[in-house]
C-alpha cells in the first residue's frame, strides 16, 4: 500500500512541477489578494492554533485536505500558489511532514518565514510498536533509532509551547499587530492549560493505567504527560504492520489487566481493535490524533480543543476514571 501511495505521489509531484513552473511566474509578481497576513499551516492542530492567534487580522489556510495522510501529501497547484503568496508557513516537524522543507525551498526566506512548530521541544524516540510508559518501560527495543515520534501536540503542554512558537512567527511578520496576536495566544493557551489541568485531574483517578491502542503509536506524548502506560500494535509509522507475537501480547495484556476497552484511532478502520475485541471481549473506543480531521468536522467548525475534550471523555471511560 505504501509503495503505491508513493507512486501516486510521484505522479502528482510531476504534475505539480509542470503547473508550478508554469504558474509561479505570473502570480508571484502580483500582490496578495488582501493586505492581511497570509499564513499557511500543514496539519489541523497548527491550523487551529494559528487561527486562534490570527483572530480577524490574518488569513490562515489549512494545506492538507481533510482525511489525507500527512506523510504522503499531494499538493495541488493552488497549494503551491498559496505558499507563494503567504508570509508565514507553519509545519509540525520534519518527521511528520518530510516533504515540507522541499515544498518551501524555492521561496526566498525574506518573503516567507518558515516555522518549525516543534522548535524547543524534546521529541520522543519512535519506538516500533512497544510500550511507551512513564517509568514503566518494559521493553527496550527501538527499531527506528534515528526516527522521532512527531505527534507532539497530543501533550497539552507541548501544545502551549507550539502556540508560543507560532506566535513568534506572526509577530516577526506582522509586528504592527503584536499585542493583538499576543492577547489571542494568551487566551488560547489559557484554554489549553485549563484542559491540561482537567486531564491531570481526571486521569489521576483511573483504576487502570494502561492505554491499549490497537493501531500505530500516535499517543505516546499524551500517555507520558499523564503518567499512563501506552501499548500500541505497531510503531509510529502510519503504515507499519504488526506481528503475530505483538498481537498475542496485546491480547494477553488485555486479559491480564482485565481491560474493558481497547482504543482505535478515529478515521482509520478499527480492524485490529475489532480483532482484539473478538479475542478478549474488550470494547472499542476511538481516540482522535487530531492531525487528520474529517471533512465534516472541519466544515462544522470543530476545534482542536473539542477533539481533545472528546479524547478525555473516551479515556475517562476506557481507563475507568472517576469523572
Amino acid at each position: 500500500m505504501t509503495a503505491f501511495r508513493w507512486r501516486v505521489m510521484l505522479l502528482l509531484a510531476a504534475a505539480c512541477l509542470v503547473f508550478f513552473t508554469g504558474c509561479s511566474r505570473e502570480t508571484t509578481s502580483g500582490p496578495a489578494a488582501t493586505n492581511r497576513l497570509q499564513v499557511v499551516t500543514t496539519l489541523f492542530p497548527l491550523y487551529d492554533f494559528a487561527r486562534a492567534i490570527a483572530g480577524n487580522r490574518a488569513e490562515v489556510r489549512l494545506l492538507l485536505p481533510p482525511g489525507s495522510e500527512p506523510h504522503t501529501f499531494e499538493p495541488k497547484p493552488e497549494d503551491i500558489l498559496a505558499i507563494n503568496r503567504a508570509a508565514l508557513f507553519v509545519y509540525t516537524n520534519r518527521f511528520m511532514e518530510p516533504w515540507a522543507e522541499d515544498l518551501v525551498k524555492g521561496v526566498p526566506r525574506d518573503r516567507l518565514t518558515v516555522v518549525d512548530a516543534s522548535t524547543g521541544l524534546v521529541l520522543l524516540d519512535a519506538a516500533a510498536g512497544h510500550d511507551h510508559g512513564h517509568g514503566a518501560m518494559e521493553e527496550g527495543h527501538h527499531d527506528e533509532p534515528s526516527g522521532k515520534d512527531p505527534h507532539i501536540w497530543l501533550d497539552l503542554t507541548n501544545a502551549q509551547a507550539m502556540v508560543d512558537t507560532i506566535l513568534a512567527g506572526f509577530v516577526a511578520r506582522d509586528p504592527a499587530n503584536r499585542d493583538y496576536y499576543a492577547a489571542n495566544a494568551a487566551a488560547y493557551k489559557g484554554k489549553l492549560a485549563d484542559l491540561d489541568r482537567r486531564y491531570k485531574a481526571t486521569l489521576g483517578t483511573c483504576k487502570n493505567r494502561t492505554l491499549l491502542h490497537a493501531g500505530h503509536a500516535a499517543f505516546a506524548y499524551l500517555a507520558r504527560r499523564y503518567g499512563i502506560t501506552y501499548v500500541s500494535a505497531t510503531g509510529v509509522a502510519a503504515d507499519a504492520q504488526t506481528t503475530p507475537s505483538r498481537m498475542a501480547e496485546l491480547v494477553k495484556r488485555v486479559r491480564a489487566l482485565k481491560l474493558q476497552y481497547n482504543f482505535s484511532e478515529e478515521l482509520v478502520s478499527p480492524r485490529v481493535a475489532e480483532t482484539i475485541a473478538t479475542e478478549t471481549g474488550a470494547r472499542i473506543l476511538r481516540l482522535h490524533a487530531a492531525h487528520n480531521i474529517s471533512k465534516d468536522d472541519l466544515a462544522a467548525g470543530v476545534t482542536f480543543l473539542d477533539l481533545m475534550e472528546k479524547n478525555l471523555a473516551a479515556l475517562a471511560t476506557g481507563l475507568q476514571c472517576r469523572q
Binding site: 501516486v8 495522510e69 478515521l267 480483532t275 471533512k295
Partner: peptide, 29 residues
C-alpha cells in the same frame, strides 16, 4: 489520475478509506 482529481474536487476525505479497503492478515474478522 481520475482518483486524484476526484479527491481534489471532493475537497478531502472523511476517513482514511484506504484503511478500510486494505486489510491485514492478522486482523481478519
Amino acid at each position: 489520475a481520475i482518483g486524484v482529481i476526484l479527491a481534489s474536487l471532493g475537497g478531502g476525505f472523511t476517513a482514511d478509506l484506504f484503511s478500510y479497503l486494505f486489510g491485514n492478515i492478522l486482523a481478519i474478522s
